[in-house]
Simulated assay, not measured.
Amino acid sequence: MDFRQLTYFLAIVDHGGFNRAAAALYVSQPFLSQAIQVLERDLGSRLFHRIGRRVVLTEAGTALVPRAREALHALELARASVGAVRELRAGRLEIAAMASPAVEPLSTMIQRFTERYPAVLLSLRVALTREDVVEMVRTGGCELGLLTTSSPLPSRDVVPHHVGEDRLVLVTPMDGPFPAGQAVQREQLEGHRLIVGQRGTGIRAYADDLKAQGIDVRIAVETEHRMAFLPLVLAGVGLAVVTESWADLSERAGALVLDLEPASVQHNILVSRKAQLTPAAGAFLEIAVPPAHRSSL
């Protein structure tokens, strides 16, 4: 068993099959299949059930996934440590992020990082919920993750760093039901249609909390696609409760942004693995997280 075989194995897992993995790796599908067959012989176990064109992990394959990620992470750590001697003139850093903090504060973090380390490739991966972010970091899929939360994290397998807060605001059409410049009381949302994220997001939790308090709001659209919020609001489909990081973009698109009362705050948390970080991840933390806030939550 070698690192190349583990790379091939994880590519099949991550891309959902041999054909897509082969295309991503720039190898032929027969070559990839042969490499996995050799790996399976070395391990003495089948790693995939082949069902038509689909593949499903066997029990042995499932057990191998976290160990393979750890092994490749160790190799990347060794390679990146050499790069650190050259002041990070090369390298790659994978960051998982929920949609709202990916607008801010992640954009500012990346700007500062790339100004100092322009040769390091940053790979941003989408995570729909805070649990997704934690899982991607915990299992080694990404070294860092950025999430928003209004309550304690569901896992202690990662190291959290508080990087700021975002208030929730209401986005409406310019000719919407509320006047500009006046905060909207949550009771005033009674009877209105809302565009929300899926369960597990702070935006959805806010809408569910309104219902729990007896405020009859209607869910017009539930979507994983945050960029759909603005077009739907402007089309009159419903109102959207979003984090303040979306305010500038919303106003420039022609929407009205209003404060909500009482204020509801989401915490932006950057999480890192408990294991030793690559120099690129360590450098990103140094830039992104004020010293007073490291491991503060």
Rank of each mutant, 00 (worst) to 15 (best):
A235L: 07
V65I: 06
D14Y: 01
S296Q: 10
G236Y: 11
E261S: 15
L32V: 11
G191D: 04
L210G: 07
L168G: 02
G17R: 08
G141N: 12
L239W: 09
V184M: 08
L106I: 13
A253H: 06
N268R: 13
I219W: 03
R20T: 12
Q198F: 01
Q213C: 09
T201A: 03
L144D: 14
Y8K: 00
V217G: 08
G282V: 04
A281Q: 00
G145S: 06
I219P: 00
Q266Y: 07
G17S: 09
G202C: 13
V241K: 12
S81P: 00
L47P: 04
P66W: 06
V82A: 15
L39P: 01
T278I: 02
F229Q: 05
S28K: 03
H161F: 03
H49V: 03
R226M: 13
Y117F: 15
L144H: 06
Q276E: 14
Q111A: 12
A23D: 14
L297W: 13
P118E: 00
A60K: 12
R20Q: 13
D166T: 03
V85R: 10
V82N: 00
R125Q: 13
S295H: 14
T201C: 09
A74Y: 07
P177R: 05
R138W: 02
P231G: 08
H162T: 02
D209W: 15
T114G: 00
S250A: 15
A288K: 06
P152F: 02
R125D: 04
V217R: 12
A235D: 14
V184W: 04
H293G: 04
R41G: 01
Q276A: 15
A90Q: 11
A235P: 02
T149Y: 11
G191C: 08
E94C: 11
R125S: 06
V221Y: 14
D248R: 15
Q188M: 13
F9L: 07
V289P: 03
S33R: 14
V169Y: 08
V217S: 11
R294N: 05
S155L: 10
P118F: 01
Q34V: 09
I95R: 05
R86H: 13
G181S: 11
S151G: 01
Q5S: 15
A11P: 02
L10K: 06
V126K: 13
L25N: 07
